[in-house]
Design a protein around this nucleic acid. Sequence first.
RNA 1: CGGGGAGUAGCGCAGCGGUAGCGCACCUGCUUUGGGAGCAGGAGGUCGCGGGUUCAAAUCCCGCCUCCCCGACCA
Length: 497
Amino acid sequence: MNDAVLTSQEQDFPRWYQEVIAKAELADNGPVRGTMVIRPYGYAIWERIQAELDSRIKAAGVPNAYFPLFIPESYLHRESEHVEGFSPELAVVTHGGGKQLEEPVVVRPTSETIINAYFAKWIQSHRDLPLLVNQWANVVRWELRPRLFLRTTEFLWQEGHTAHATQDEARDFALSILHDVYEDLMVEMMAVPVFTGRKTPRERFPGADESWTCEGMMRDGKALQMGTSHELGQRFAAMFGTTFQSETGELEHPWQTSWGVSTRLIGAVIMAHGDDRGLRIPPRLAPVQVVVLAARAGEGVSEAASAIASELETAGVRVALDDRMDVSYGRRVTGWELKGVPLRVELGPRDLAASSAMVVSRFDGAREQVAFTGLAASVASLLETMQRRMLDEARERRDATVDEAASVEELLAAAKEVQGARLARQVGSQAGQDDSEVTARGSTARFARVPYGALRQAGEAELAAVGLSVRCLTAEDGGLPVGLAEGDCIALVAKAY
RNA sequence: CGGGGAGUAGCGCAGCGGUAGCGCACCUGCUUUGGGAGCAGGAGGUCGCGGGUUCAAAUCCCGCCUCCCCGACCA
């Protein structure tokens, strides 16, 4: 009866992650290693992300288009860093129509090259700029160590590609996507606070001059790269011969950007908010915001539940009705909790007699008796409050686990302490000890801020040896280090997914 | 690719020479239903693949394949 539904996060976070994905019916492994079947409930979450992202992207002036899945292998080779970066994870098709192909085609790992081949045709004059396109697509990167949603061989994403007349305009565009589209979506809709910053050369997109990133922190203290926006400079334009005639009549290469977020965001929501009972999906993101649950059979209960569901739906709430009386109350409650539905409106004979319903929050389990009159208004306000509290909670948790470090040595020592604490905790719990004290200090991974001047590339390699990486560079005050020399930046260091 | 494990029912596992098992899930029926219900009955297997040893192999031997975990690369 009191058996836990899931392995607890504290006991084994990766296992909790796998279990919650299976039990909330989000996804399954595909038959080919690294592939993923996204089940209806998981796909519904993706559709919510898509809908919100798509409208923000369109608001930024970028229309959708579609480019082919297959790319001539030779295209990849035109930009040396690009091909170097992607070669190890390419899927290459050598046969078609029963015959060996004269030139192999690669399954797109990203579309910079093929899109540039067409930008080169479409761009002639400064009047053709800026040229802005976005595409929703699947891409393939052969992964050695796949994890559902976080790193799969095939994944779904959105990739935007733009060409501009000047470097400044390209940079401004890349940064506005980072803030007004990505950060806004992650913070306002997904309730996941993110650090924004610049990637170090080591972590940069292959072929980019500059990569900008949104980094979230998961409940186990690890970082997750949630979205990136790149300044590609003129390198692809040069390789594909993309030129435009400027106002003064000169032939110039355009300055380009590309940017993308993927189904990885679903993993972010799972790991940033989920708890030992399952998912907790922020109301604005949730495909189902409220489930109206007939708690116990009785005269008119199903009818009343159905009426309430309709009323909420009319009020603009995404609602599900659960009046399955052949499944026990407890099982149904557990199921909706696993799926992370923000609010449960429960209705039984007792409630019906009192003309009220029991409203239960998935955020903190709080229950509240709410009269039928004004139920829709209460629900709407509870949802908005929950959205804000989820963001606050995530931000507090994150900020409580960001440390300052002065040197690489200090970082390495801290990393070892964390590993040691984790080990001690494992040994302690095996010995049946009360591990709360050990757990309280340093048992989770954490972020650290360290001056990049004290770190540099040599230091980054040292950190990599203990599983740490520089997630991004920020200015001293946490802002974007636009135009700042790397040595004057603060490096945000963490273990990452 | 380097190091460590594991392949037995949908999932998780036990069995380690002698008729293929357990828990959960599934099907049928009855009783239940305000926090994963109970009882009874039932369905489900090429024990990863190939060879060998043996009267007899899930079990022992040889070869192969696959998967998982830890490292190097990644949205």
